[in-house]
C-alpha cells in the first residue's frame, strides 16, 4: 500500500470534496485539502473505511496564514502504516472575531485537549453536529480566566498588565 495506491483510493473515495492533493516534506507524506464544512464526513470516512483505516490522529496543528487559519490533522493508519495530513482552512469574520470549525472530538477522541488549546489560543469555536451553535464564550483551560484576546493570532498585542500585575519591569 504505497502513496500512489493511497492517492487512487482517496480520489475515488472523496472525489468531489478534494480541493488539492499534494506530497509534502522529505517523507513525501500525502496532504489532502478539504472544505472546512466537509471535515466531519471525510473524517468518518477516513477512519471507518476498512481499506483506509486512519484510526490514529497523532497531531492537530493550527497556524495562521495572513488572515485565515490552517487546520491540519496528522493521521496515521496503524494497520497499513500509511500517513496522511488532512487540511482545511477557516476565516474568522474579523481580527477579533471567533472563527468556527467543525469539531472531530467524536471521530478521534485523542484530539480533544489539542482542540481545546487551539480554540482558546486562536479563538476558534469547534462545534459538534451540523450547524455552528451560537456559543459565545470559550472556557479557559490554558489562559487565566478572564483573559481578553487570542494570544496566538499574529495581530495580537501583548497587554501591558493583567489583573493589576505589570508585565514589563520598567527601568531595568
Amino acid at each position: 500500500m504505497d502513496i500512489i495506491e493511497l492517492k487512487k483510493r482517496l480520489t475515488e473515495a472523496l472525489s468531489e470534496k478534494i480541493l488539492e492533493l499534494a506530497q509534502l516534506g522529505k517523507g513525501r507524506v500525502l496532504s489532502v485539502w478539504v472544505e472546512a464544512k466537509h471535515i466531519n464526513e471525510v473524517a468518518l470516512l477516513l477512519r471507518n473505511e476498512s481499506y483506509l483505516g486512519f484510526s490514529v490522529l497523532e497531531n492537530f496543528f493550527v497556524a495562521q496564514l495572513d488572515s485565515a487559519f490552517l487546520l491540519s490533522y496528522y493521521l496515521r493508519a496503524p494497520k497499513t502504516g500509511m500517513e496522511l495530513i488532512l487540511r482545511a482552512s477557516i476565516v474568522p469574520p474579523n481580527p477579533e472575531g471567533l472563527a468556527k470549525a467543525p469539531s472531530i472530538r467524536e471521530v478521534w477522541p485523542m484530539a480533544e485537549h489539542q482542540e481545546r488549546e487551539s480554540a482558546e489560543l486562536f479563538g476558534i469555536i469547534f462545534y459538534l453536529g451540523l450547524s455552528p451553535a451560537d456559543k459565545k464564550e470559550i472556557k479557559h483551560s490554558f489562559l487565566p480566566p478572564g483573559w481578553q484576546g487570542f494570544p496566538f493570532r499574529k495581530e495580537y498585542k501583548f497587554p501591558e498588565s493583567f489583573s493589576g500585575i505589570q508585565h514589563q519591569r520598567d527601568g531595568l
Binding site: V62, A63, Q64, H113
Partner: peptide
C-alpha cells in the same frame, strides 16, 4: 519561525 507547535505526550496522558 512562522509557527512552531509541539505534540507533547504528557498532554495526552493527562487526558
Amino acid at each position: 519561525p512562522h509557527r512552531v507547535q509541539f505534540r507533547a505526550p504528557s498532554g495526552f496522558h493527562l487526558q
